[in-house]
């Protein structure tokens, strides 16, 4: 466990820098490498290059890293709340709530740029409903809530299919066309949610022992539960509003984190945050690099949404992790 952690501490900064550079140098539009270097050192005279690197590529990688970290930490918290390592942010239904709110506003007020506040508000409102209704069993209530909200979204899309292309990025999760404004809206959440989550770590270590043991140790389980759920929902809501309901990052990152760092939340939370950031950003690198050609369709789609990649990679990775764990 110790050597794994040391390796992680040494490798993650390297991996992080490599990922950021890869994002800045690669991309779907052609910017020569020397031009990227010139942009980064402030000596580029061609404004189009500067625009692409600083206003498209940089926010994209920053939002990817930030949303990945938030999803991972939210995953750790949700798993702690329901005391089940197979839970994830989606278990709370907040992603479905965000999607419904986005579709709802697009149907009711088409042409208005309400997607970001709608996604955020929908996610937070779902979290509030979950807390009020689900006191007995969050996992079951959250999954049911998510199913109901997803059904309502489908219903709205059947009635009015105009918003489908816009809402798809919230349903699947995508980092395409992120702007500096997205990063401006995201980073304050990182600054609040990540440290707050870590400060809850010692309480979480007690909480996961179960209600009777936690009460016996003097933990006031009611208020702790409310705060943990609030932070988990806030983290997921901010990530989903920025990048959509990206699947599996909130499940896989805490899982790998537990393999590397153990169950102690004081270590698990920062380790998962780093892993989630790297994972989403790496998946995004794959996402914009691949192109898909479907038989019978003339245009080939280059650059798939990152949510499709995380699900395609995440599912087998998770399956193998569960197998390994059961064998160990």
């Amino acid at each position: 466990m110790r050597w794994r952690l040391s390796a992680l501490v040494l490798l993650t900064p390297v991996a992080g820098v490599a990922l950021v550079l890869a994002h800045l140098f690669l991309g779907r539009s052609d910017v020569p490498a020397p031009a990227v270097l010139r942009v980064l050192t402030g000596r580029e005279t061609e404004p189009a290059y500067a625009l692409i690197v600083l206003d498209y590529r940089l926010p994209r990688v920053l939002v990817g890293l930030g949303a990945g970290a938030l999803l991972a930490v939210s995953g750790v918290l949700v798993q702690a709340v329901v005391r089940n390592p197979l839970a994830e942010p989606a278990t709370t239904g907040v992603g479905a709530g965000a999607a419904l709110a986005v579709v709802g506003t697009l149907v009711l007020w088409p042409g208005h740029a309400l997607a970001y506040p709608a996604a955020l508000g929908g996610a937070l409102a779902t979290g509030a409903v979950l807390y009020v209704v689900g006191r007995r069993s969050f996992a079951v209530t959250g999954v049911l809530l998510g199913a109901v909200l997803a059904a309502l979204t489908s219903l709205l899309l059947v009635v009015d299919s105009a918003p489908i292309s816009v809402v798809l990025r919230w349903l699947v999760g995508s980092l395409n066309a992120r702007t500096p404004q997205d990063w401006t809206l995201l980073w304050p959440w990182l600054v609040v949610v990540l440290p707050t989550a870590w400060l809850l770590a010692s309480r979480l270590n007690v909480w996961v022992l179960g209600e009777p043991a936690a009460t016996g140790l003097g933990l006031r389980t009611g208020p702790v539960l409310a705060v943990v759920l609030l932070v988990a929902v806030a983290g997921a809501a901010a990530a989903i509003a920025a990048a959509g309901a990206v699947a599996f990052v909130g499940l896989v990152a805490p899982h790998v984190g537990r393999l590397l760092a153990g169950a102690d939340h004081r270590v698990l939370i920062p380790v998962s945050a780093v892993l989630g950031a790297l994972l989403l950003s790496l998946a995004d690198l794959v996402a914009f690099s691949v192109s898909v050609q479907l038989p019978g369709i003339a245009t080939d789609v280059s650059g798939v949404p990152v949510g499709a990649v995380t699900a395609l990679i995440g599912a087998p990775v998770l399956a193998s992790l569960v197998r390994r764990e059961n064998r160990a």
Partner: peptide, 14 residues
């Protein structure tokens, strides 16, 4: 101090 009967085993804890 309390020792409850049904205690949850946190995944991976030592």
């Amino acid at each position: 101090g309390v020792l409850p009967q049904t205690a949850v085993v946190p995944t991976g804890a030592t």
